[in-house]
Design a protein around this nucleic acid. Structure first.
Lengths: 347, 347
DNA sequence: CTGTTAGCGCATTCAG
DNA sequence: CTGAATGCGCTAACAG
């Protein structure tokens, strides 16, 4: 049924080791020999057994993609899928497989990671940041587990992460809204438990923009969501109830934006006409539903891709990789009123 | 660093084989011996090398989840992620890992599958249905590859699939809309290339409901989308331009629904006030954005879960598994006008 | 109930 | 440039 390296060797009239050399692209094979071996491989449709290879080389050529599943936001979040896809692409390019892991509770995370790495199912892991990840990461150091985290997990983390430069994007968004004339801007920011993401999330950027504009920050206008639709709704309701009323809202994720928009709809407020809105992720589905929604576009696919590349670098070099920050961009549409020009609302 | 089965054996004062028996839950071990071995395993934090095990047992205890990547709809589709998650959960429960594969072009699909299975990286695959899958599946038979397809891949497929009972759901939706008074209902259905999904997709259900109501079907009102937002937009534009005008639209997926809603918005039509709409998937994000959107809810997580269970059954029994159809439900909200009662529109 | 022997398929010595 | 011997860590087969 399955042919082995010996079958190929016999057919090509060489030793198994030579076949092995060809498989592994060793330069120490005569061109003609290589050709004969390649032909034999093709004829027999030979595929080297990954388990045997892994046993011998102590590497499975695969990476775990670990998503600690804690709440439903995981399922509501297209971003997760984009990151996964980016990581997969990078790994595939480097010859690694992606093994998905979704521990159901925080307590299971370490056990699952331990299993995957200790039994050599994977050579390393990409870990979605979550509460308590800082503790985990230190444990990894002790256990010698190669990892990359998607988002920073603690303030001093210097290596092995890919995160968004949230302060930068938040600054862009806030500055833009202020420049257009908004004066009381609500911020629905990252959850506390991801707060160390990119050196403290969006808040510093928001504050900086205010400072630069000579505007005081009303602390009650900074609220943390948990990335869910519901939290966006709740936080926006609070913001809309503030006095004096907010004239703009910035949401750092699309699901939260959806919730916020619902709260506005309930009050009869139309984004771009009655209130300013900057949305979070610029997912295709959000774009389609709310034409003209000015958005922060975060390179999520790219984030996953970078993480994939970096974990392979780490695995192959054995050296930790300096963390990387990715910048999003502001996509200007019509949900922020232009006080200087004509008033344009959304249909 | 990593301890082996021999280390454990030595520490427990038994042979390696006995340790092996304990690891594999063989009943042929004295309770006391088992305890001693278990203790040694814990003390050494021993995890049996999956490669060595796989080599010996000719099984990696893993399943490939293959998503042929052809177009962006993959990224727009939260359903994919739900299915993946369902499959992962089932596999985890059965002790299998999930290996993600996303071949970039149709030509690469077979090569990738061949690699994964022939080199024993996976024991079987769950394959997302796509154009040409029927040909692939026959090839699998020849190569003795265990597979489950998400959706039927050809009309006569009897085994190894999990699909939605689309005719049933479409019938539910269409009947409901007719009962509420709609008379010219547009259907934006599955793409041609997935048309064999569930014995010909939604169309039969749509037709049946018309027949039962004594209504003729206007063929020009049945249009195929490609699951993308854009296609929903285009198809809806055509439907809205038909004469006499359609008074209702049924979309079989949420992204297509979003496109359709945009087309309606452009014409100033409000669902539930000026036109009836039944949406496709009932994703959380869609629910949040369009309160009151009457929807078909399809059990996508369940579909993945079933596929996971069934592929393991197939792998372990060696026997093909009869295909399974899952039924969605109709979630009634307010986007279909009730001609009998009061007229209620959407805010 | 437990141990011994052998070998899964490949790649790493170390020789030529 | 090529090959022979050896073993990665584990478990089937076969004893006891």
């Amino acid at each position: 049924m399955h042919s082995t390296i010996y079958d190929v060797a016999e057919r090509a009239g060489v030793s198994a080791k030579t076949v092995s050399r060809v498989i592994n692209n060793s330069p120490l094979v005569a061109p003609d020999t290589r050709r004969r071996v390649l032909a034999a491989i093709a004829e027999l449709d030979f595929h080297p057994d990954s388990a045997a290879k892994g046993l011998r080389q102590r590497s499975r050529k695969s990476v775990g993609f670990v998503i600690p599943y804690g709440s439903d936001f995981v399922f509501q979040d297209q971003g997760m899928w984009m990151q996964t896809n980016g990581a997969h692409r990078a790994l595939a390019e480097r010859g690694y497989d992606l093994v998905l892991a979704v521990p159901e509770t925080p307590e299971l995370v370490l056990a699952e990671l331990n299993r995957l790495t200790r039994n050599r199912t994977v050579d390393g892991v990409i870990l979605y940041a979550m509460e308590g990840a800082d503790v985990l990461l230190r444990e990894f150091g002790r256990l010698n587990i190669r990892y990359m985290s998607l988002s920073m997990c603690y303030p001093e983390q210097k290596n092995n992460f890919v995160d968004m430069d949230s302060p930068h994007t938040a600054h862009l968004a806030t500055k833009y809204m202020i420049d257009q004339g908004a004066r009381r801007i609500g911020l629905i920011r990252e959850p506390e438990r991801f707060f160390y993401s990119a050196k403290a999330g969006s808040e510093p950027g928001y504050r900086l923009a205010h400072e630069q504009a000579g505007l005081a920050v009303d602390e009650s206008l900074i609220l943390a969501g948990d990335y869910s639709i519901e939290s966006g709704y709740e936080m926006a309701k609070r913001l809309l109830a503030s006095k004096p009323a907010v004239d703009g809202v910035i949401c750092v994720s699309d699901p939260m934006t959806l919730g916020a928009l619902r709260a506005m709809r309930e009050k009869g407020l139309v984004p771009g006409r009655d209130i300013d809105v900057i949305a979070g992720d610029d997912f295709p589905t959000t774009r389609a539903m709310w034409p003209g929604l000015t958005s922060i576009r975060t390179p999520l696919y790219e984030q996953g891709y970078q993480a994939g590349m970096m974990i392979v670098d780490y695995i192959q070099s054995g050296k930790e990789i300096p963390g990387k920050l990715l910048r999003g961009e502001l996509i200007v549409r019509e949900s922020v009123r232009s006080r200087s020009g004509t008033r344009e609302g959304l249909g």
